[in-house]
């Protein structure tokens, strides 16, 4: 019975992905197909992440989500950001989370299907309701027309654009400071207290 539910979930997921791909191909050609594929990768990864029993698998499913988002960035013409996404999220954050995974003892009973199912249902419902309302109220006047190609696409130009003196230099510096402070803070919080390492006192009159 349990295996049935697992398999059913993945089958459903596959079907949904296929349907999305079909919709994409039909509405936007190759571009639409690519978009549908990346969107499926993103959302599918997220779903698997929530669904999977093992934390390790969840983490790797998250990899798919991050990759999908990077793909969406590529489609949007933000090459630089896509690379940054892969470098930092896939290379850095995911590695950190995997470190965290090593902390948690394997607990196969942790996932409660009822809880996950209820959560997914509620989340889906809320999404659907808000989405429907938004779709009904907001007029995406430009939505159908193909957007113009972005002026800046190459990483070099973007870098120059970011770092031009009148643009975002100060913001970048601030970000660097924030990052440094956060990392120092992380090290400070994570360190073992000195008391943990304290060795038994030396015998009196040693020296």
């Amino acid at each position: 019975m349990a295996m049935g539910i697992e398999r059913g979930f993945y089958a459903l997921l596959g079907l949904a992905a296929l349907a999305g791909a079909g919709w994409g191909l039909s509405s936007g050609g190759v571009g639409g197909l690519l978009f549908a594929g990346f969107a499926a990768l993103t959302l599918g990864g997220a779903l698997v992440c929530i669904w999977e029993r093992s934390v390790v698998r969840s983490a790797f499913a998250l990899l798919a989500t991050f990759g999908g988002v990077a793909g969406l960035f590529l489609l949007l013409g933000a090459d630089f950001l896509a690379m940054a996404q892969i470098l930092i999220y896939v290379g850095g954050i995911l590695a950190l989370i995997l470190f965290g995974v090593m902390l948690s003892p394997p607990d196969p009973t942790e996932r409660k299907l009822s809880r996950v199912g209820l959560g997914l249902a509620a989340g889906g419902g809320a999404f659907a309701w808000v989405g429907a309302k938004v779709a009904a109220t907001v007029h995406w006047s430009q939505a159908a027309t193909p957007p113009p190609a972005p002026k800046l696409s190459h990483a070099r130009e973007i870098g120059v654009g970011f770092l031009a003196a009148d643009q975002y230099v100060v913001a970048f510096e601030l970000a660097a400071v924030v990052l440094t402070v956060a990392l120092v803070a992380a090290v400070y919080i994570a360190r073992r207290k000195v008391a943990d390492f304290e060795e038994p006192a030396e015998p009196e009159g040693g020296i």
């Binding site: 850095g92 924030v178 956060a182 990392l183 992380a186 994570a190």
Partner: peptide, 16 residues
């Protein structure tokens, strides 16, 4: 970009 930086910092602190 800032969000990514923030996420990195957040991940480090959160893991700590």
């Amino acid at each position: 970009i800032f969000t990514i930086i923030l996420a990195a910092a957040e991940a480090a602190v959160a893991l700590a």
